[in-house]
Amino acid sequence: MSQLLTEFRRPELLQIVALTLRVTGAALLLATVAGVPIGALLGLVRFRGQRLVTLVLYTGMGLPPVVVGLFVYLSLSSSGPLGVLGWLFTPTAMIVAQAIIAFPLVAGLTMSAVAGVDRAVRQQVFALGASRWQSAWTVLLEARVGVTAAIVAAFGGIISEVGAVMLVGGNIEGQTRVLTTAIVLYTRQGEFALAMALGVVLIAVAFGANVLLLRLQGRLRDQ
């Protein structure tokens, strides 16, 4: 136990935590900015091909992260279509991969939450004089518990993900090493106390981030 405590003082720990938050935070932001409006739109309107889009989205929610990693790796590798960007083995590549993993989760669950809002709400809001946009925003607010759950689920999915970030980031010390890849490495090296310490930190970070998200949800209610 005392060994576990000393591990918390390792200087590289802070750096790893900071990078983890930066990568996952940026990816979640991207996925939310794109996924919530798109999910809301899909939940609000009826159009041709909707079932297909829904199917694609739901499949995307279950996409194996390592396959996304492979796809991003091939796209960003020097011979790939986006190789000129030089993003492979940088945090940017990790953000791209995590954003792709998070997007269907955010969009798909937002869609279900919005579609689940009673039709009566929309009629009521219309009758009270809301414009189209005001009406969409109000429905989204009514669905906020589900939308928050979508973001929380996506966050949990990517912060704990290891395969994709390992592939596209390369787990380079001081550059692309995040909590999950560090845990894998230290466990392999037999540094169990350090790996455990990192595991505890990962859980604490996830807990803290979810507290923040739930607060945001509460704030929206009081608006």
Partner: peptide
Amino acid sequence: RRRVTTVFQRPFVLNR
């Protein structure tokens, strides 16, 4: 349409 409003038979209140 903002000049007209309805109190519905089964009114729906917003979660506020």
